[in-house]
Simulated scan of single mutants.
Amino acid sequence: MSTPTVLRRVAAVRTGDGALVHAVVDGADDAPATVVLAHGWTLAQAAWDDVAALLAPRVADGELRLIRYDQRGHGRSTWGRYADDVAELSIDQLGADLGDLLDQLVPTGPVVLGGHSMGGMTIMCLAAARPELFGDRVGGVALVSTSAGELAPPGETLAERLQVRLAPGLVTTAIAGARAIERLRQLVPPASPRHRKIVRELLYGADATDEMVVAGAEIMHASTVRAFAAFYPALGAHDKRTELAALTGVPVEILVGDSDKLTPLRHSRTMAGALPDARLHVAERTGHMLIQERPHLVADALERLLVAAR
């Protein structure tokens, strides 16, 4: 089967503090609906490639416009006001960035948002800060392998208390020594069996192929030590469990793998409890990288949300 021809352009969205967010826009500007996809921590827009490929025929037919973008400090996007100091960096900032992207690239028409991991948290932050967008402009949301809060260690054991106390210092040290750490990373590239074994055990389920693992490992390896360290405390501080009201007014699909180690099933159940009309899908033998492992499930969820949004 031939690959559909898709109109593509690259856009740079300037945020309120001067950061440039790199986005790829597939499809015509006058398409009847737009899907915007936000990626996770230490990933990039390429993490959505498998889902995008499944949506490509609809994009080529003019039924859909698809936007993928690099989160601040990831991929080709810049740091803005956090270029020199990441102490105040938060997932709320990523929510504001997504709002700027919608204002500039999708000023009109129905929108469906999809977020994987930190990308899902980004959508929650936007909903908390700008609830008027949801139900009016944003007509559906897919939350994939993500969490509304309680990601930081609870501090119940000595090891957890030390982790919480030492985290800020470790972040500072990691950023200061980023060049040295980057050199060490090059000694164990994604092609090495050791690297693939670590990535597979942490992020993937039992059915993941070697090709999936290598592709994901390469995306993460292209990310910087600074992105890894800077967003770690921001993820721990993220808590929108009591600020999901805006999402109750739109269709929501929640997807999670039963083997997800980073945002386990209990996080998705918490969100589903706060959003009683949401649909919860648990994928068997699937890890945190559900968008790679089960892209058909995600594409199908986005299709359902588009029908509802239109």
Rank of each mutant, 00 (worst) to 15 (best):
P189W: 04
D70L: 12
A56P: 12
T270H: 00
V106H: 08
S77F: 07
Q186D: 01
S90N: 09
G149T: 10
R241F: 03
Y82F: 15
L265F: 00
V307M: 03
A309Q: 06
I198K: 05
A283D: 04
E150K: 13
P264D: 00
L94A: 09
R185F: 00
P251V: 05
L102D: 08
A274S: 08
E132Q: 15
Q292L: 14
A227K: 05
D260A: 02
R269W: 00
A31I: 09
R196Q: 15
E160Q: 15
A28G: 03
A278I: 10
R194Q: 09
D61I: 04
D85C: 03
L94G: 04
A178E: 13
T122Y: 11
A19R: 02
H195S: 07
V213L: 13
D85N: 06
M220R: 10
T248K: 08
A174R: 12
H238E: 12
G119C: 15
A191M: 05
A127C: 10
A142I: 12
P233V: 14
M271P: 01
L166E: 15
L265D: 01
D84L: 09
A152Y: 01
H116K: 08
W41D: 02
R241S: 07
Y204M: 03
R200W: 06
D17L: 14
G257T: 01
L302F: 00
L98E: 13
D85F: 06
G40Q: 06
G139Q: 14
L66Y: 05
Y69K: 02
A31C: 08
T15M: 14
H116F: 09
L126N: 11
I254Y: 00
G40I: 00
L306S: 07
L166R: 12
G273H: 02
L170M: 11
E293L: 01
G80Y: 05
L235M: 15
H221V: 09
L43R: 09
A19K: 02
G249W: 13
R8L: 15
R14W: 06
I291E: 11
L54V: 06
A38Q: 02
L151G: 05
R285L: 05
V25W: 08
A191P: 03
W79V: 04
V86E: 13
A308Q: 08
D70N: 11
V252R: 09
A274D: 05
R185M: 01
V213C: 10
P4A: 07
M121P: 08
G273T: 03
H288K: 01
L94M: 09
T42A: 06
R9E: 13
A23S: 13
R279G: 01
L162I: 11
D300Q: 10
T242Q: 11
G119V: 04
G140Q: 12
